[in-house]
Design a protein around this nucleic acid. Structure first.
Length: 565
RNA sequence: GCAUUUAUAGUGUAAUGGAUAGCACAUAAGAUUCCGGUUCUUAAGAUGAGGGUUCGAUUCCCUCUAAAUGCACCA
């Protein structure tokens, strides 16, 4: 519903088109306080042009403006405030939502172009920690948001499944491990071997040589090495997928580092052909001075490749395979500089999509204000957090709503949803201090609060015993002023969807869902919905619309919205 | 040392360059407790410091302060 355009037209013609309609439209804003109006035009920009004080301009303009379609138009100081016709607005908004259902807010800006998203990326034979949570849920939500904006996202889990640590792991396994233990509890056992290796190798440095030997065998295609590596990878992935299933996250590809192993020679050759490689301190680098960056180290002095070499191969592969409109990397903010280098090298190489490479960085998760790290032993396992959260959610349900059918399922959706929401409601770049019980509360700015608002809406609809067909076709003029804030928020959803997409910012959606839930809570505390009067169907259509939009907003975040909880 | 990011009430946070800086948790007092675990009212409380651009700055620019992160053979 574009009332801004109408207003801009009206003002422009009242000024004999001395000011461009587009300029006026850009200046129209929503007043902070809704008592002042629904839309406002500040007259400051006209002051110079008309050589008049803004207050005077506002007063004069109001008299000339065509007020058709508005309840009233008033000048308040330097502002012209527009009050929309509530019953028409209500009709327009609710009609659109009920017609489009979960497709409300969709747009086709993406034109079905591909967007690759590099996300999650845990290391094989290591557990998934809270550190991976952010990349996983932010990436997943961005993918959902991109879809809603008409893009075709491709989620790639760039597994850390190659490197010298596999030499160590093979050595350790052959010395101390056994198959049964690993099958029973893969990740923990493999980590145990790895840790044990590092302990022993301090006193027996010859172990390192053995490990290096095994990695070399692996690279050269030795069957025993490959079999072991494959096995480690398979059991790890199986374990990872259990966690991903809990989170409800799916990937399109798992092209890890090993996948690109044989694609790096070509990258080196391309760099050589373009005369980009330079020797420096024994290593091969690409000079990035013209980007004001440190040189990118491509090959070590012993000729071995580095992380960036693999990432170059990855980016080139994605460019050729998908021709992406954007290539996103959802990776922590500590790698900002690194991704600038990566982008710069790709640009030097003339890769078409280099300009569309975006690092989507995010802040750290802290525990008691301190950084989590494997080394210091301050590590929180994602699996355990999810299980704890579900358990807590179940206890709450047991206490507050013991008759609920399907308790386990709901506890899952609430417990996991709380964790995801607790992460996504924060601005990406902010660090999060993780406190589980704060995220599970029903009050305050939490996932369960939004889920609960949705469940209440569904509950009211159930009790109404009115078919959804008659809601869709019935009257949608809610004249109750208490509903006004809700209606305006509902109308705002498509704009939020665009904004979240442009900024790769799921928190825009999360914050919006909180606002809408709050407005709805306020509404139904004031107004009884289930009263037989002329507006009953209209009120139900409002509640239905709220339910649709809340559910869709949560879906974009990757959070389920149970009908009862 | 250089670079990047961040800085808003006790805590967590919001505000396309616009009106009285919004909200949540916690605190204090009161009302309501009727569709499911409510909501409302009131009280108290904040833009790190200093400049600049602007009719107007929480927002843009500069300096300072503090914190986090990164800066060549790790990923």
């Amino acid at each position: 519903m574009d009332y801004k355009q109408t207003i801009a037209d009206n003002i422009s013609s009242a000024l004999d088109h001395k000011i461009n309609r587009k300029d006026i439209e850009a200046k129209i804003e929503v007043p902070k306080n809704s008592k002042m109006g629904d839309l406002a035009f500040p007259t400051f920009i006209l002051a110079k042009e008309l050589h008049q004080a803004p207050q005077i301009i506002a007063q004069n303009l109001v008299k000339q403006i065509n007020t058709e379609g508005f309840d009233k138009v008033v000048a308040t100081g330097p502002y012209i405030n527009f009050f929309l016709n509530k019953s028409k607005f209500s009709n327009d908004v609710l009609d659109l939502i009920l017609k489009q259902q979960q497709n409300y807010g969709n747009n086709q800006r993406g034109n079905q172009r591909n967007v690759t998203i590099d996300m999650s990326s845990p290391n094989i034979a290591k557990p998934i920690s809270m550190g991976h949570l952010r990349s996983t849920v932010i990436g997943n939500s961005i993918a959902n948001i991109l879809s809603k904006n008409g893009y075709h996202p491709i989620k790639d889990n760039h597994l850390g499944d190659w490197g010298t640590q596999f030499g160590k792991l093979i050595t350790a396994y052959l010395k101390w491990g056994n198959e049964k233990d690993v099958e029973a509890d893969p990740i923990n056992k493999l980590v145990e071997y790895y840790v044990h290796f590092h302990k022993v190798d301090k006193e027996h440095p010859e172990l390192d040589d053995e490990a290096r030997e095994w990695f070399k065998k692996l690279e050269n295609g030795n069957q025993e090495a490959i079999n072991l590596w494959k096995w480690f990878r398979d059991v790890s992935l199986k374990s990872f997928n259990k966690t991903y299933d809990k989170l409800g996250v799916k990937f399109d590809t798992y092209n890890g580092e090993s996948f690109y192993n044989d694609k790096m020679d070509e990258v080196i050759q391309m760099l050589k052909d373009k005369h980009l490689l330079k020797k420096s301190r024994g290593a091969e680098i690409v000079d990035l001075q013209k980007y004001n960056l440190n040189p990118a180290l491509i090959l070590k002095s012993d000729g071995a490749s580095l992380y960036i070499t693999r990432d170059l191969a990855t980016a080139i592969y994605r460019d050729r395979t998908y021709h992406p409109a954007m290539n996103l990397y959802v990776v922590g903010s500590e790698q900002i500089l690194y991704f600038k280098q990566l982008k710069a090298v790709l640009k030097e190489m003339g890769i078409p999509s280099a300009d569309n490479l975006h690092h989507v960085p995010f802040g750290l998760i802290l525990s008691n204000g301190q950084k989590l790290s494997t080394r210091s032993g301050r590590i929180i396992l994602l699996n355990k957090v999810l299980d704890d959260s579900v358990k807590l959610a179940k206890e709450q349900i047991q206490e507050k709503n013991p008759d609920l059918p399907n308790k386990d399922n709901v506890a899952n959706e609430v417990g996991v949803g709380a964790i995801i929401f607790g992460d996504l409601k924060n601005n990406r770049m902010d660090s999060i201090n993780f406190v589980l019980k704060d995220q599970l509360r029903f009050e305050g700015e939490t996932g369960p609060y939004v889920q609960y608002a949705h469940a209440r809406a569904e509950s009211i609809l159930r009790k109404a015993h009115v078919s959804s067909q008659s809601i869709v076709s019935g009257s949608k003029s809610v004249s109750d002023p208490a509903a006004w804030d809700v209606l305006k928020l509902l109308n705002d959803f498509p704009r939020i969807v665009k904004m979240a997409c442009d900024e790769f910012e799921p928190s825009d959606i999360a914050k919006y869902s909180l606002k809408l839930s709050k407005a709805f809570n306020k509404y139904y505390a004031h107004t009884k919905v289930l009263v037989k009067d002329d507006e009953l169907v209209a009120r139900l259509s409002l509640v239905k619309s709220i339910s649709i939009v809340l559910k869709e907003a949560l879906r974009l975040l990757g959070v389920k919205a149970p009908d009862q909880m």
